[in-house]
């Protein structure tokens, strides 16, 4: 028996491109934009969301038959908040500097619309295994955009990737800097994150014209 059936595989694959949480479903934008000035922060954020979404979807899916629908939002928030507290404490213990850079945005995973959106749209109506796959798929779709934005912003903004000087040293004028290349400091400012995501959406919809909106 295959572990992942064809139908289940679609759960993971769809959010990757054609139903991407950020560029198509418009969920979870806040954190995607604020912390992508460095690649490292984007990766850590993606992993945190992967953990919270995967586990949260399973928990909600297991409880779906006993949650009264009137108070489901509060129940969902408590589940997410508990998972996020775990992530926050782990980050503070093992990556203190990074948790300072992410500041309130770790806490804001709670209100990241991807999580509530997937709970509402999927976990409340499906079994734990499928919910888990859906959670992982959406978190990966989110991570792809986050990492792409982080990659371009760090590369063009400070000429580094994960802190390594891939384009040479700007002070000693080695590598690309020797022929007069300059870092574009503007990429590090937050408005550029919006424009980079805008361009990603543009490219994606040019490739797949069925996604184009009416207006």
């Amino acid at each position: 028996m295959a572990l992942i059936s064809k139908k289940d595989a679609a759960l993971i694959k769809d959010p990757f491109l054609d139903n991407n949480p950020i560029t198509i479903q418009v969920l979870g934008i806040c954190s995607a934009l604020a912390i992508t000035a460095e690649l490292k922060a984007s990766i850590v954020m993606s992993v945190s969301v992967l953990f919270v979404l995967g586990l949260g979807n399973v928990v909600i899916s297991l409880m779906r038959n006993i949650i009264p629908s009137k108070i489901r939002i509060i129940v969902q928030l408590i589940v997410v908040a508990t998972l996020v507290i775990i992530v926050d404490l782990v980050l503070k213990a093992f990556a203190y500097e990074l948790s300072k850079t992410l500041s309130v945005f770790v806490g804001l995973i709670i209100t990241n619309c991807i999580i509530m959106g997937r709970f509402e749209a999927f976990a409340l109506g499906n079994g734990p295994w499928r919910s888990f796959l859906d959670g992982i798929g959406n978190a990966v779709g989110y991570a792809v955009i986050l990492i792409a934005v982080g990659f371009f912003r760090e590369l063009l903004g400070s000429g580094t990737l994960l802190g390594f000087k891939v384009l040479g040293d700007p002070i000693e004028k080695t590598g690309l800097y020797a022929i007069g290349y300059e870092n574009n400091g503007f990429m590090l400012l937050s408005p550029m994150a919006l424009i980079v995501v805008g361009i990603i959406i543009w490219i994606q919809r040019t490739k797949n014209t069925s996604l184009i909106e009416e207006n």
Binding site: T23, V26, L189, S190, P191, M192, A193, L194, I195, V197, G198, I199, I201, W202, I203, R205, T206, T209, I212, E213, E214, N215
Partner: peptide
């Protein structure tokens, strides 16, 4: 607006420009 930018895309870019203004 270029078709692929309609809706979400152009909103992102406008917001980016507005954010630059607010800076």
């Amino acid at each position: 607006v270029p078709p692929a930018l309609r809706g979400l895309g152009i909103t992102f870019i406008i917001t980016g420009l507005m954010a630059i203004g607010f800076m």
